[in-house]
């Protein structure tokens, strides 16, 4: 572009053709961005080109997978034994707790039957491994090694052993992209375990904490409070740990309290996650009532709308 015909460049070239080409391409890129923002073309384009994208993801994930493998291979024996013992203890504890929970669960079922409530939330989870690549340091997303072919659908909740990690936003054939709860564009309905106060926890730009922007100033919220998912909205199941409140301050207007929380899940070093298959019970407004009117068999025969169509079809 800045080259003249004989291949040499002038020091202060300012060709109008080059500027014109730049403007054309900028306009093209802007149009693409707007269309993609409106129609989600990128998702379709990515799904179509998954054959290329997925191997690239695996390839880019190789270095860190290699480091992990080397760490396991060369870790000294005593540490592995220590790890093993630790995991054994944890498993024992978890099993003991599970046994007690099973009894409580049965009791709960019986009580629910007595109350005639039909809200059984069977947990049906699928294990997925995180492909360690970095899409963008300032957007908080992770890539999993399971996709549409493994039954992953956008909207599924993702948890790890400690709490909620995020939700699937995109499912390619063999990989999927998860939006973490700390992403600035993410929000999750929570309830405070101690008081039952409901709030919305947003992600934050810094990415290592959650923000509760609009809590009423009179609400009872303290540092150290546990936040659980409330299940409102039906996207996340109720009762999973989301975070712990780390700071509570009145906001600038003085009308609301603003609180910050540390996520319960280990988002920085998450390695394996569970994809929940059973979506939560739909909690929301009841189904719309059927239109009021006389019962069907008493309605006048609806012949009027059909007649003109027949007439129109006749030549």
């Amino acid at each position: 572009m800045a080259l003249s015909r004989d291949g040499s460049t002038s020091l202060f070239s300012d060709s109008p053709a080059g500027t014109l080409r730049l403007l054309t391409y900028i306009a093209l890129a802007a149009v693409l961005m707007v269309l993609d923002h409106r129609n989600g073309w990128l998702r379709q384009a990515r799904y179509a080109s998954a054959l290329v994208i997925e191997p690239v993801y695996r390839l880019a994930g190789l270095p860190s997978a290699g480091v992990e493998a080397a760490r396991t291979a060369f870790a000294d024996r005593s540490r592995l034994i220590e790890d093993n013992r630790h995991l054994r203890e944890a498993l024992l504890m978890a099993n003991a707790r599970l046994n007690r929970m099973a009894a409580v669960d049965q009791q709960n079922q019986r009580l629910k039957q007595l109350l005639d409530v039909q809200r059984a939330l069977g947990m049906n989870a699928q294990l997925a491994r995180v492909i360690d690549i970095d899409l963008d340091p300032f957007r908080h997303r992770i890539v999993l090694n399971a996709g549409r072919r493994q039954g992953v659908r956008p909207g599924q909740a993702v948890i790890d052993a400690r709490g909620i990690v995020g939700q699937v936003v995109e499912a390619l054939p063999d990989t999927s992209v998860v939006l973490l709860i700390t992403d600035p564009s993410h929000a999750i309905p929570v309830t405070v375990a101690r008081t039952g106060l409901r709030a919305i926890a947003d992600g934050s730009a810094a990415g290592d904490r959650l923000e509760l922007p609009n809590v009423p100033i009179s609400a009872d919220l303290r540092v150290g409070d546990q936040l659980l998912s409330s299940g409102l909205g039906g996207r996340f199941p109720a009762g999973f740990p989301v975070g712990t409140v780390t700071a509570v301050r009145p906001d600038r207007s003085g009308m609301y309290t603003r609180a910050w929380a540390r996520p319960a899940a280990d988002l920085g070093r998450v390695n394996e996650v569970l994809l929940l298959h059973d979506l939560a019970d739909p909690v929301g407004p009841p189904a719309p009532a059927p239109a009021a009117g006389p019962p069907d068999r008493l309605k006048p025969a609806a012949t009027a709308p059909a007649a003109p169509r027949n007439a129109g079809a006749a030549p």
């Binding site: 693409l32 961005m33 990128l42 899409l135 997303r141």
Partner: peptide
Amino acid sequence: DLLDGALLGEQALRLIVLVF
């Protein structure tokens, strides 16, 4: 953009300006 999955055309615009 296709690899990054953020917004189609975002990096295209950045690289155009840079190269220009």
